[in-house]
């Protein structure tokens, strides 16, 4: 196995594109190194992205906050603008692993690892985040929900990496939240994860909403019906019931060591209701 730590995105793309065999880009490495150690993957080349200065930036742009691929979760959660504008994304990213893992793991790595249970992804989906993909054929912007295609698989082509994610600026009276269910208080993989972002008008009617649902399907879902259940309402109990029902209906989970189908379907609704209440309270304050 070879290990390279290029200094620029262009070098990284070249290395990844020209390498033969199994090649992995590495951001925080908190998933990749586990798989490496257990023998699940046997890479011929690992390309470390953390020496690329450009990928360490959190930059305010005209239409949102751009977070670089190598920004560790702990750093994102210390960034005042990120915390103020995207509390759901921050709390979701902040739930990945332990304090030790937080110092290494990245939002983009979490996305590219393509686990259906990835914590940050439902929140990113809810936030309408846009991934900037760089590759041998240039740069393209892709909605985050289009990145994972199956457990462990992404839509990225050979030589491509995600350079950054844009968190689009929200209108006034917007709020977002992420909740996950785990059996313990920490250190578990989400049994269900729900990210909700919503916007109210001046009279408190929900005008826009996005709901991301994790760990209940092969990929994180953007649940349109769940958003529809909120839009046009005051996010009252009836709307929350409809939201919960839509989330439960959208869930098509499996039975596994972390939860049963029955449990996940129900909890998807329960958590959606709770997350929507938090997002609503935040929207009302903004």
């Amino acid at each position: 196995m070879r290990f390279e730590s290029p200094a620029t995105v262009a070098e990284a793309v070249t290395l990844l594109n020209e390498a033969t065999g199994t090649v992995y880009p590495m951001a925080g490495g908190t998933d990749l190194l586990v798989r490496l150690r257990s023998g699940f993957v046997e890479p011929d080349l690992i390309v470390d992205l953390k020496r690329i200065d450009a990928l360490h930036m959190i930059v305010q742009e005209a239409d949102g906050l751009r977070v670089g691929a190598a920004v560790p979760s702990a750093e994102l959660n210390e960034h005042a603008d990120a915390l103020a504008g995207w509390p759901g994304v921050c709390e979701a990213t902040g739930l990945i692993g332990s304090t030790q893992v937080q110092g290494r793991c990245t939002m983009v790595g979490n996305l590219c690892n393509a686990s259906p249970a990835a914590d940050s992804v439902p929140a990113l989906v809810a936030a309408g985040a846009i991934a900037r993909v760089v590759g041998p054929n240039g740069t393209r912007d892709v909605p985050v929900e289009e990145i994972p295609t199956a457990p462990g698989r992404t839509s990225l082509k050979k030589g491509e990496i995600i350079e950054s994610v844009l968190l689009p600026t929200k209108p006034a009276h917007s709020g977002e939240a992420y909740l996950r269910f785990i059996p313990r208080t920490e250190m578990d993989i989400a049994v269900v994860g729900v990210g909700i972002s919503l916007t109210l008008d001046d009279s408190g009617i929900c005008t826009d909403a996005r709901v991301g649902l994790g760990a209940v399907a092969a990929t994180v879902l953007l649940v349109e019906d769940a958003a529809k259940a909120l839009i046009g309402t005051k996010v009252d109990d009836a709307a929350l019931d409809a939201l919960a029902a839509a989330c439960s209906a959208a869930a098509s989970p499996i039975n596994d060591k972390r939860g049963t189908i029955e449990f996940r379907v129900e909890i998807a609704g329960t958590l959606a209701r709770r997350a929507a209440k938090i997002a609503l309270a935040r929207a009302q304050q903004n």
Binding site: L33, P72, Q100, G103
Partner: peptide
Amino acid sequence: MDGRIVCSCLVLGAEAD
């Protein structure tokens, strides 16, 4: 490592440069 705690089992030796 550089002021943040990490699991040293999740850091490659080469990364410590």
